[in-house]
Design a protein around this nucleic acid. Structure first.
Lengths: 256, 256
DNA sequence: GAGTGGTCTAGACCACAGA
DNA sequence: CTGTGGTCTAGACCACTCG
């Protein structure tokens, strides 16, 4: 509740206006250096620096150390519809048209992702869902995802070894329909899903890969897929820069 | 990607540890003044101030101008299950046991809320959902919600005038089962719901009521209720401090 | 008025990018 | 080696709370 004046916010607002309203600085363009902005706006460089930190935290600009400050090119959020992305027609993952691909192409960008499959000790959250001791070995499918050249998400699926061992779930190429289809073929059809989401500052490693500042925030989405018997068979943890994504959920209301 | 040392982050981490791990500063307790922390940790007061800003942004501490800095008391997030909260058994709102009440009492806190009913020009988002001109008159039910003394949410429902005029939807007390039950009685049973959520810095007015700093973030959840005919009959915009809430969504997966 | 935090300036030094 | 941002310090002044 800053009743205090606050020049740095005024400076931030003026620069924000130049970007969004007056289009003085276009997406991708480099801003004047801090020293110049300071001189032009009649404040100290420290004040401009703080203002730019605010705009960077919002995702409006990004800073490349030693190079300069630039207007972000991804000004429209990426839309993710949780229920829709798991419907069969959106899951033709093997053919290169998975839900993520659709989400990114909708913005006219080129999706890209890198997958690493391995066995790891179950993280705490995952162990809790599976009902095993933390540290129990599970299969991990870690995906690092990009829109164009920009990293936009880390998604790591965890699967109990007794389900995945020796199956397509441990392969690099999960085949047509994505891994949800493989689960079904193995007798673990997922009939119910849940997602629990929170927002927090990025961990160092996350900030590093996602090119985020400590002032920005990530969504942490813990997705769980359940079989008809009520067994959780897949936990997927999604980490997404909060300023880049808009999330949607749809559901039917039970009669009553 | 701060490969730069950064004393202020180290200071923040040391204070964070004292709160979470070593329990030197307990929930509700006042921290030493910035000047003292600075002397003790061997840094300038500006550095301590910046470190505390980081912790305040996370919601771990809060600052009362002129008084001091205190450890937050709400260290466990409030859990909100979107689908569950609209199920009939959780909607006995009139009796003082609505979904929000349950969410807060689960943490051992006392829920409280203030309602203001009025007619207002439709905000842009709302107008778009209803398919009317922005500025068209709609009924607004604005709720400001508290957990104990702490403000935790602003929720404003918008309803087309042709539906709400002269009905219980314009009354202060919406009666048993909450307004969703009233919609059903009026022939507008909501059979499908959607929520679109994003994260952003609080607007000044929001920060003011929710007692937030500009470095914190809010969820903006746009909830829409649809009838079987596909008409959107209610838009509810929820504003929640992101560090206070954890959101959950459950859904069934169509067979295939 | 005393106590506490919020912000601003001025100057200095460091880290990283690129020629 | 130069240019750009990131951070730290020291000192000053302002705003809000409470006695």
């Amino acid at each position: 509740m800053p009743t205090t004046p606050s020049q740095y916010r005024e400076v931030a607002q003026r620069i924000r206006d130049r970007i969004l309203r007056d289009r003085v600085y276009l997406p991708g363009a480099q801003l004047p250096k801090e020293f110049e902005l300071a001189a032009e706006l009649g404040v100290d460089r420290a004040t401009v620096n703080r203002a730019l930190r605010v705009l960077a935290a919002e995702g409006l600009v990004y800073v490349r150390r030693g190079k300069g400050t630039f207007v972000s090119t991804l000004l429209t959020p990426i839309h993710r519809n949780a229920a829709a992305r798991y419907r069969p027609e959106n899951r033709t993952e093997g053919g290169g048209r998975g839900a993520f691909d659709v989400e990114i192409r909708r913005l006219g960008l080129e999706p890209k992702s890198e997958l690493t499959v391995s066995r790891v000790p179950a993280p705490e959250v995952v162990a809790k869902v599976f009902g095993v001791e933390p540290g129990t070995e599970v299969v991990a499918r870690a995906r690092r995802m990009f829109a164009g050249e920009a990293p936009v998400q880390i998604a790591t699926s965890y699967i109990p070894v007794d389900i995945a061992a020796g199956t397509a779930l441990e392969e690099q190429d999960s085949g047509p329909g994505g891994i949800v289809s493989r689960f079904a073929e193995l007798g673990y059809a997922q009939v119910r899903m849940s997602e629990r989401l929170s927002v927090r500052p990025p961990a160092d490693e996350e900030a590093n890969f996602l090119k985020m500042t400590p002032d920005q925030r990530v969504y942490e989405v813990v997705h769980v897929g359940w079989t008809a018997e009520g067994r959780p068979v897949e936990v997927c943890v999604h980490i997404m820069p909060a300023h880049l994504w808009e999330l949607e959920y749809d559901w039917e209301v039970p009669v009553g």
